[in-house]
């Protein structure tokens, strides 16, 4: 049942690659340097996980990059869908969360996903409760950059 941090990172990377590169054709890659948004308006989109592994997945990115991603999703001019940006980024996080959940099910974890929530926010708004671990991945490429974060706590089972 237990899954270690490296395995979670591997599953998260696989999920992100499938959504951003394979599906959206945005060729982003994990980068070692921290992503800085330098005063730009940023969005934070999250999906809660509950079950044998509790936690949440978060995506933080600038509003400008959120527009670019949703523009790619809809194949449309960003000016045509202002009200859809929060919804579209929520759907991106939802797809990454779904794939991560499916990947973690290979380790025996059973979880339920919450409904995506998107709001204005920064990386530090994505809190790590006491006793939870955090994975953070910085991504860049195709003219966009973002931070993917996953906070989690595994249920303890007696053997």
């Amino acid at each position: 049942m237990a899954v270690n941090n490296d395995e979670i990172i591997s599953q998260l990377k696989a999920a992100a690659e499938k959504v951003f590169t394979a599906n959206l054709r945005l060729f982003v890659r994990p980068v070692s340097c921290d992503i800085e948004f330098e005063g730009a308006e940023t969005l934070l989109s999250t999906v809660d996980f509950t079950g044998s592994l509790d936690g949440a997945l978060g995506l933080c990115l600038s509003s400008e990059n959120a527009f670019k991603i949703v523009s790619k999703m809809l194949d449309a001019d960003p000016n045509q869908f202002t009200c859809d940006v929060y919804d579209g980024i929520g759907e991106v996080v939802n797809m990454v969360a779904g794939l991560l959940k499916n990947g973690l099910s290979l380790y025996g974890h059973k979880m339920q996903l919450g409904i995506p929530k998107t709001r204005e926010g920064v990386e530090n708004d994505f809190r790590v409760p006491e006793g939870f671990s955090k994975v953070k991945l910085n991504y860049s490429g195709s003219g966009i950059s973002f931070i993917l974060m996953f906070v989690y706590k595994q249920a303890i089972y007696e053997s």
Partner: peptide, 12 residues
């Protein structure tokens, strides 16, 4: 579908 963006994609 609850996502308006996903609905638009599917309809398109």
């Amino acid at each position: 579908e609850d996502s308006s963006v996903q609905r638009k994609i599917i309809v398109k």
